[in-house]
Amino acid sequence: MRLKIPSNFRIIRVPCTGKVDVIHILRAFEKGADGVYVVGCMEGDCHFNEGNFRARKRVEQAAKILDQVGVGGERVKMFNLSAGEGPLFAQFSIEMDNIIRELGPSPIRVAKQKKKDAA
């Protein structure tokens, strides 16, 4: 199965989305990411029972903080799929890529670039 997906993101593998914490998402933005999406198992199908529910809550928390600090909460999203759904993963990636392209670069990346240019 060869699927075309955007090549502009890095996959960070975790044993369960329940492992993803708010700080991991924020750090990605701090380092200049334009968007973060968390892809978990189908709700109700978590091996650890509620890992993906925790992840969804943390994505919401991160979104709220990003709104508060002027980065924009819409840059972080949570998706769910089951392990065999490669095409769906591709679809989510394209969807996310479109969202981010529409939003443009993260203000943090812009600010960091400006600083670098000035130096």
Partner: peptide
């Protein structure tokens, strides 16, 4: 510790954004 990390990160982003 977690909340310290989150607040610090949030503040850093806010102030970087403000230049």
């Amino acid at each position: 510790k977690k909340e310290v990390e989150i607040l610090a990160s949030a503040l850093r982003m806010y102030f970087i954004n403000k230049g």
